[in-house]
């Protein structure tokens, strides 16, 4: 019949209007500043530095190997290695800056890091008034605890923790074996002596 399509359409839009007050599915808008969407676990924005323990600077996992600096496609990472009083290199960064205005959030730094020291964050509210104070981030602002890492990406963080523990255990075992071997060398079995 002529006009039934119009009536069906009107019914549909009426259902949308009434449904928008009752069903979440018919009013999916999120009122952004007041409420935010919970980001997915594999959502990533900018890198951050992971530290173990309670204190940021001593606990940094970064050994300042500068692999990330070399791999970074837009070259937004800048590292200077720490040196002790004898001018000997220390496994710690003196300067670790990331320019967020240059960073393209590719995550390559986190992929290449052999020490699991740099990971991708999920913060996105980073507007600043001026490029060089707000978005050029130093190591103090980059450092975030392992606990925080667990909060934003539990699966990935557990996997990393497991791997680190495994590495540590292997390293300890290797050290023990080495120590044992060294001890054996130092004190040869009595049978060989005679």
């Amino acid at each position: 019949m002529l006009g039934t399509g119009i009536l069906r359409g009107l019914k549909e839009t009426a259902r949308n209007v009434i449904g928008s007050f009752r069903e979440k599915d018919r009013l999916p808008t999120v009122m952004y500043p007041e409420e935010t969407v919970k980001t997915k676990e594999n959502f990533r924005t900018f890198p951050f530095l992971v530290y173990d323990g309670d204190h940021a600077m001593p606990g940094l996992r970064c050994v300042s190997c500068r692999i990330c600096e070399k791999e970074c496609p837009p070259q937004c990472i800048f590292i200077i290695q720490e040196r002790d009083e004898n001018n000997k290199a220390v496994k710690h960064p003196r300067v670790f800056d990331i320019d967020f205005s240059v960073c393209m959030q590719c995550g390559i730094c986190a992929e290449v890091c052999p020490f699991d020291a740099i990971k991708m964050d999920n913060i996105y509210e980073l507007a600043g008034e001026d490029r060089f104070t707000g978005l050029l981030v130093d190591k103090h602002r980059l450092a975030k605890s392992n606990h925080y890492y667990h909060q934003i990406k539990p699966t990935e963080a557990n996997e990393v923790d497991g791997r680190l523990a495994e590495d540590k255990r292997k390293a300890e075992e290797a050290a023990k074996a080495k120590a044992a071997a060294a001890a054996a060398k130092a004190a040869p079995p009595p049978t060989a002596a005679t």
Partner: peptide, 8 residues
Amino acid sequence: LGRIQNRP
């Protein structure tokens, strides 16, 4: 119109 189009 907003409600019809599933927005507030």
